[in-house]
Amino acid sequence: MRDMPYRWIEAIQDRADYIEDQLKPGSPVVGLPYADGSLLLTVSKGAQKIFEVHDRIALSAIGHPADIERLRMLVTDTASVQAFQSATEDVNLHRLTHYVLAHTFKQAFESIVGEAYIIKMLLVEIGNGAPETQFTHINYDGNVKVQHESGVIGGTEEIETAMQNYLTEAKNDTPPDLDSALQLALKTWAVGRKLSQSFADAEDSNEVSEDEIDEVINTELEEGEIEAGILDNSLSGDTKFRLLNKDEITRTINR
């Protein structure tokens, strides 16, 4: 089909449309730095969506669970082998993204006879002595976007833009403490969730009021559960990742 450029481009476009349709209802993920590290938050119904990749790297994704699992294992395996063969300090998000994940996503997306990955991935790395946190967003087509102040993934680009705008408006010069970061992340998640529901019905405005945010949170938490993972620089061991337990999350949200 590659010797027939028009058909190939059409097929790619069809594939992109299909993947975006599948991703649209996905529960968004929000990544935020806080005073001692970084936070990933989403609301899920059963299956875990936030994962430890390595000592200072965590991952979350939206998409098909089988694709998420396959690619999570790929990046976890690679990081583990590299850490053993060389040193833990040599495992970093830049290498994992550019030498392992991005081209795997792109290759699957453009091999139109094979299966595509229905996935968008958000990875976060906290610096080892470096002041900056890095959020890396990888799209299903292999495009990579690196940000330092926050990271989000949502069903569509419009949803992600609205979530980023909400975060920008709420931005403070100093990194928040964990409780404040959790609350802000949950509200930002609700912005994305509300928009993913409205886009399913019609092309509505992407403005979401505070009342709507509260309503979405109350409704969604009837069936779903908040899932939050942190990379915490203050943890004493090499591994900086841990999932927050239900009590910690409930205590913060009800505050």
Binding site: R70, L71, L74, D77, T78, S80, V81, Q82, F84, Q85, S86, R95, L96, Y99, V100, H103, T104, Q107, A108, G114, E115
Partner: peptide, 25 residues
């Protein structure tokens, strides 16, 4: 199983395609 992973690390694959990133380890 980490030992099994190490044993097969040079053939880590996704859908039959060997990953470039792992080939250096």
């Amino acid at each position: 199983d980490f030992l099994s992973l190490l044993k097969h690390a040079d053939t880590l694959q996704v859908d039959g395609e060997q990953t470039q990133g792992i080939s250096e380890v």
